[in-house]
Design a protein around this nucleic acid. Structure first.
Lengths: 137, 137
DNA sequence: AATTACCCTATTGATTTAATAGAGTAAACA
DNA sequence: TGTTTACTCTATTAAATCAATAGGGTAATT
């Protein structure tokens, strides 16, 4: 299951990408437009800022805005920040590899073999989609 | 993340599929060979029996065995029983569809659009792999 | 009849998730 | 310069899910 955090994060990014200009948008406006708990959204936007996707401006007329063009924001990067590893098991993860403690040999592991294919399929989707591809004009 | 239930279930199925004949294998033997808590494995095998993947035999010489050939067991079916819906959000699920209560319109939803592609990619993997494909001789 | 091994229910501890509360801080504008 | 606005941060909590454990019950085989 996709976490609410990821879901809300994607919706917020899409909303920002659909703005005409790159003027800051207030948290409250994003939250109400996308039906998201404002406080929860705050923490999500904060993590997107800390990872370089968003910029923020304080004070009157402040808010959040995209730091790059939507078509330069890859879904692989967004998903890794919001949802974590793309792989379903650590032993097939590119960025978060870990050996399974219960598995004697990855080369003969049925789970490993299947999850490797699943990972590749998912990666392929995320690599070929940018934030711009999610916007429906 | 893949749940332990699914992981263990896949390992147990693979172990059964790798047997020379279709004689019943005891829970204890599967558990020790695959490093799985025996009691936990019991409940998993039980659910696989109730969903028609396994047969069981009681008494001495009893155990679990595959009801079909490994190449007739599709990963889509196995995954749906063990892990649940393949889709990451209910609004793109084929077998477990549900409308998102926070989303006014699926047709313009960025999350929906992306997760539809992800679902198709995953389905494609699971549909083209059977239990036989997981076995490394 | 005794043994073996499956079958079932209930409970628990740990972890994660989603949300809430409340105080703090920095920037803009009059 | 002071006030408003809106982002920033920490802590807490309620709920849900996951993984495992315990223990007794039942059915089939020898």
């Amino acid at each position: 299951m996709l976490s609410k955090k990821t879901k809300y994060g994607l919706k917020a990014l899409s909303f920002l990408a659909s703005q005409k200009d790159k003027k800051p948008v207030q948290i409250a406006e994003i939250a109400s437009h996308e039906n998201i708990s404002q406080k929860f959204l705050e923490s999500i936007l904060l993590s997107l800022r800390k990872t370089g996707f968003l910029g923020s401006k304080k004070g009157k007329g402040g808010g959040y805005y995209l730091l790059k063009n939507a078509d330069e924001i890859l879904m692989t990067d967004v998903m890794r920040v919001l949802e974590g590893p793309i792989a379903m098991v650590p032993c097939v993860s590119l960025n978060f590899y870990e050996k399974c403690d219960d598995c004697p040999d990855e080369n003969t592991c049925a789970v490993n073999k299947l999850m490797l294919k699943v990972r590749d399929a998912n990666l392929s989707v995320y690599r070929h989609n940018t934030l711009a591809d999610l916007i429906i004009t």
